[in-house]
């Protein structure tokens, strides 16, 4: 269990921003990661549930997903692209995906997140709010690589493109296991995108023609670096075959 000093539930964004700018204050979304992390320092939690950040809406060809939207809600929403719905389901089991949010998923940036990889290929843009710049829209890949994390910033929403054809290929120990490596791919009018999990500290966009270039995957008991590279090659080529309508 996380060590928790205090719990607060701000009613508006200004209040929330000013709270999280204080020392050891962090945003709380679903809590599936934050409330279960035993290794953190004692924290003040700032619960975002009253900030009206939930919901899914279409606007000029894009889909805007509020950061507090749960993976369950995304999975059930028929406006969302199939791949996004599917990876919201595969990300967590039934008893956790009703709590976990898309904002929390992005903020934790888990290397193995199929949902993040799927969002990456759907050109996700993250709307972030901080007290100095106000709202700004940042490509998801830039949010993920921020070394200092999202200090004193709030994820407000995520915009994704819904056109094109997208899919995900994965290898895990069992069918519903968190994949050792997964490859998400999308084809739309202006070309292909590809993102890979399990090869870097967060899911990463790669060159669909040359997906392993500059990858240096970590090794663990589920697969060493070399095996992970091998999986990227195989899964990427399968993904392209599927996009090409082969097989």
């Amino acid at each position: 269990m996380t060590k928790i000093i205090s719990y607060q539930r701000p009613e508006n964004l200004e209040e929330a921003l000013s709270l999280i700018s204080q020392d050891k204050h962090v945003p709380l979304a679903g809590g599936t990661q934050l409330n279960t992390n035993e290794d953190t320092e004692p924290l003040h939690l700032v619960d975002l549930q009253s900030l009206a950040l939930k919901g899914i809406a279409s606007s000029n060809g894009k889909l805007k997903i509020g950061s507090m939207t749960t993976l369950h809600e995304i999975m059930k929403n028929s406006d969302c692209p199939d791949l996004i719905r599917l990876s919201s389901r595969s990300e967590l089991p039934s008893t956790l995906r009703t709590l976990a949010t898309i904002g929390g998923t992005i903020a934790s940036g888990d290397s193995d997140s199929q949902l993040i990889a799927s969002l990456l290929v759907h050109d996700a843009e993250v709307t972030i709010l901080n007290s100095s710049d106000g709202e700004l829209s940042v490509p998801l890949q830039e949010v993920l690589i921020k070394p200092e994390g999202l200090e004193s910033e709030l994820i407000i929403s995520i915009d994704i493109a819904t056109d094109g054809k997208s899919l995900l290929e994965a290898t895990g120990r069992t069918p519903a296991d968190t994949p050792i490596v997964s490859v998400a791919a999308r084809r739309c009018s202006d070309g292909d995108r590809m993102a890979v999990t399990g090869v870097a500290p967060t899911p990463v966009l790669v060159d669909p023609e040359n997906p392993t270039v500059s990858l240096q995957p970590p090794s663990d008991f589920r697969g060493d670096s070399e095996y992970r590279i091998h999986l990227v090659k195989i899964l990427a080529s399968r993904a392209l075959d599927l996009l090409n309508g082969e097989k």
Binding site: G30, T32, T36, T95, L96
Partner: peptide
């Protein structure tokens, strides 16, 4: 477990199945 993945603690939280050991009591207010 304390991380919710066994589901033995699951309840209907706002009508949806959810592991109650990952929800803070305060969150449930």
């Amino acid at each position: 477990s304390s991380t919710g993945e066994t589901g033995a603690s699951a309840v209907l939280f706002d009508d949806l199945l959810a592991s109650s050991e990952v929800i803070l009591a305060a969150q449930a207010n």
